[in-house]
């Protein structure tokens, strides 16, 4: 099934050696080579990822879509060095992320991760949560709190700086988690359904803001979502994963110029891409 799909779809295939953008640096930012992940539990073995090959260029924005349980989170966690793949390799700027059972710390230092759950620390206030990564790096208190306040405002939490996570709504917590990931200005931003808990309007605003931040900080972004419109709006490329086992079904390029405004969504080509992807997703059982 996956084989048919590959021949049927997009010209841009996920081959590791094929540069997709004209700006091809010496080593691509991120390379997944034959990533396979199996989980062994009492009830048997789950193959969450199967032979994933993908190259992501510097400053590229990649959206990752697919049905629930198809392995998006697992793939992202592999990139973050939180899951050790059963087979295959993650290369970041040509360097292997995993060295035996350990993760290269210099790579982790460039990472900003937003998890599917907010995972805030209930004993810290909003600013202290946002400033935690800076604190771990020994940034002075005054400096890191200033930065945290800026970020709180950026994600629309002005006035809640001194609040505690329990006093926030789910969407607000998630925004704190986003601000926390941004605090160190990561070169590689990994986000797992970060806007899942937000209302449509806030989500739209956060999408535009994220696009701006990614451009301003020259970050490479891998963005998991189940919202196709969001994926197309944000992504330079969209990677569609199919479940059981998780494989790349297709990779689509989205060529709209940046910065993209909300109006891009009304363009016929935008609608066509969204429709294609939706059909492809619907075909899955």
């Amino acid at each position: 099934m996956a084989k048919d799909a590959k021949t049927m779809t997009a010209p841009v295939a996920g081959r590791p050696t094929e540069p997709t953008e004209p700006t091809a640096p010496s080593a691509p930012k991120l390379q997944l080579v034959g990533i396979t992940k199996e989980f062994h539990t009492k009830r048997g073995t789950t193959r969450a990822l199967s032979d994933i090959n993908l190259t992501i260029n510097d400053k590229e924005f990649v959206s990752l879509i697919g049905r629930s349980g198809c392995g998006k989170t697992t793939l992202l966690r592999t990139l973050a060095g939180l899951v050790n793949p059963t087979a295959g390799e993650v290369l970041i700027e040509g360097r292997s992320l995993w060295q035996g059972s350990h993760v290269d710390p210099t790579v982790v230092d460039q990472l900003g991760v937003v998890f599917q759950e907010a995972n805030l620390f209930p004993w810290y206030s909003v600013v202290d949560n946002i400033a935690l990564p800076l604190r771990l790096r020994g940034v002075k208190r005054k400096e890191r709190l200033e930065r945290a306040c800026e970020l709180a405002e950026l994600v629309g939490l002005k006035g809640f700086e001194k609040s505690y996570p329990r006093e926030l709504s789910g969407g607000m917590r998630q925004r704190v988690a986003i601000a926390r990931a941004l605090s160190i200005t990561p070169k590689l931003l990994l986000m797992d359904e970060p806007f899942g808990a937000l209302d449509a309007l806030t989500r739209e605003r956060m999408n535009i803001e994220l696009q701006r931040i990614a451009a301003a900080t020259e970050a490479t972004v891998v963005f998991v979502t189940h919202d196709i419109t969001e994926a197309v709006f944000l992504g330079d490329r969209i990677v569609h994963l199919t479940p059981r086992p998780g494989r790349i079904r297709q990779v689509r390029s989205v060529e709209f110029t940046r910065p993209r405004g909300i109006d891009v969504q009304t363009e016929p080509e935008f609608g066509a891409i969204v429709r294609d992807l939706r059909h492809a997703l619907d075909e899955e059982e």
Partner: peptide
């Protein structure tokens, strides 16, 4: 929360 700490090195 452990993973957050891990991802922050």
């Amino acid at each position: 929360q452990r993973e957050v700490m891990r991802s922050l090195n």
